[in-house]
Design a binder for these strands. Sequence first.
RNA 1: GUCCUGAUAGCUCAGCUGGAUAGAGCAAUGCCCUUCUAAGGCAUCGGUCGGGAGUUCGAAUCUCUUUCAGGACGCCA
Length: 561
Amino acid sequence: MNLKQIIKDDIYNILSDSLSREDILIENPKDRKMADYAVPCFSLSKILRKSPNDIGLMIKENLNNELYESVDVINGYLNIFVNKKKVIEYIINKLKEEKEEYGSNNMGNNKTIVMDYSSPNIAKPFGVGHLRSTVIGNAIKNISEKCGYEVVSINHLGDWGTQFGKLIYAYKEWGNEDVVRNNPIDELKKLYVKFHKEAELNPELEDEGRAYFKKLEDGDEESLKIWEWFKAESLKEFAGTYNLLGINKFDSYNGEAFYNDKMEPVIRELDEKNLLELSDGAYIVRLTDDMPPALIKRSDGATLYITRDLAAAFYRKKNYNFEEALYVVGNEQTLHFTQLKLVLDKMGYEWSKDIKHISFGMILQDGKKMSTRQGKNVKLHDVLVEAIELANEYIKERSPELENSNEVARQIGVGAVIFNDLKNYRTSDIEFNLKDILKFEGETGPYIQYTNARINSLLNHKQNVNIDYNKIIINEYTWNLVFKLYSFPEIIIRAKEKYDPSELSKYIIDLAQDFNKFYGNEKIIDDDINATEFRLVICEIVSIVLEEGMRILGIEAPKQM
RNA sequence: GUCCUGAUAGCUCAGCUGGAUAGAGCAAUGCCCUUCUAAGGCAUCGGUCGGGAGUUCGAAUCUCUUUCAGGACGCCA
């Protein structure tokens, strides 16, 4: 049952002579007291040459469907209230039948999406910056799967490139094996920061860094050994952070280094297609006039970011035959991905259009970009630990006898951090603010978790008797809440189309708010068994959608808290 | 300098393809736990939607212009 579609069809049947289906708009009114659905008649007024009110009245008189409870015409709007009992009964039955499958669709059946996300840089701390890619990517993966897509998740580790040349140089110059072994990531970060500090005074160091990367690419044994060591330490440390986050399953961890032996054929093909051009000793591909060319090979012969990404794109197309390839990478890399697509397009691959840069806003500090080079990046692990500690304090104070409180504290603390990152529009920059992240009240992850835990405790009173819908009285709170559930499938589709988890987060917050209004203004359990059961069934189906929404967002749902 | 984003309440942000009195959360103030989890609910306070012009029945939303902030801009990723 698609109410909007039904309304559209009904109106179309009344007016069909003079207009097309697309001319009929169905809106969700801002003020729910106005209507369940509103049809503005202003644009129809031009086509039909009648006043909006007359059109509304004309539709109203011919509208005849038991699904509508009442129809009014006000200020040029046709306001429709649907038959609440019918819709509620429909939603309850649907959710009881489909359970967590509710909201799924099959738009992606037999289609594969390859997703490149998280992708932290080896030998650097896992910072809050990479949290965004991880969390947004994970949510989009779940949303896509909900839409029937096969998703291949790739953690494209930043484990290759000039930065390792710099790091190896810094380690050999200033590093100490024992010190690094004791506390690898922090020490490597110090070395990395020191390198850039020194390089500011002595720019020749940049050349040293490049030279070491070139050595690495040429297979220099000592450099490779150091690199492998750094990589292993990093992965060890990252695993801890991923486990805390609860996002730790990727189909592939093939990072940039994986494509080391897969770039030559790409370069050859570019050459064969006469796209390669020598410029200042480097190989470039010219794109459009108003865009800098893509640098394929440095003048010393070493490869670059885009070279590896080209090789990766071919590898993925060949191995996964993707419908879409999503790159969940920050805003600041827009130019890189525009260039990547253009190069593929110039090579004649029409699937370049399926490559999509899912960009997101940066995490700012004092209004500016956080920079690892300056040592400013905040470690995600520390933030998570702090959030979990705070959750523990809440638990000690409010539910001291809670079992497995450590695990619940982890779920809550992490839920707060994840939700904080997902609640805003994907492309907006976020100011890093520990105070906001550590807020457990209001529009937060813990608010949603708390709402669901509350429902869970109510459900102990359920008796599983059949509901007599004829005896049901539906008030404003009940109707708003159930009607909200009705729009969940649309929200999933919108989140997929926009590649934006915030569509879902906003919905889930709304739903939790509607539930808490319902809960706060209504006594759920009373002497009337039929009414009590009805309210409990509503609680039950709300919980199904809340939990499914949280699962998609990557937030765990403790049963008690 | 060129290009791209953005600017909505004291703060953080919503506002779907232009549509009915611009909405939440936080902060502030006042209520509500002898009744289902107060991480909650209710109420009050708070806005010339950065400025200016235009498009039209109608603009926070579209166009132009201007100011401010951030980002990107060949050998980093």
